[in-house]
Amino acid sequence: MPETLTLPDDFRRVCEETLTRVMERTQGAYGAVLATIDGHAVLSVTHRDLPSDRIAAMTSSLLALGETIAREAQQRQCKFVIVENSDGYVVTLRITAKLTLSTFSGNEANLGMLLSASRNAAESIGKAIPQRTHPK
């Protein structure tokens, strides 16, 4: 992980608590990955063995494509991308201009609940970002 991504202890604690809360309160959720917009994993809380580095890069590509599709469709600012699969969901959303959050769940999860919990988590993390903490 690049040095620029080292998080201050207080902020790291908030992130860990927030991600853990999403996992606890959302039925079927099994992972949450915090990453930079250009695909570096920052922090992850998972109940399964997930390749968070690879996931971070892929979600970066996904959001970048979402943003590009929005522009082509004459829309603005891709806020989140949902990938619905036969046995689960992946929700990737933008926290700030430089941070993203992805959450993973099985199909027993309620997609609305997962999305709502992910958005609340993103908001909490966004508010907790100290000045100059996140990558320049």
Partner: peptide
């Protein structure tokens, strides 16, 4: 393009993600 946050910062502000 997305904002670059890593070592690229010295030469490029953005990098291609997809």
């Amino acid at each position: 393009d997305v904002d670059a946050t890593d070592e690229l910062l010295s030469s490029k502000d953005h990098t291609t993600a997809a």
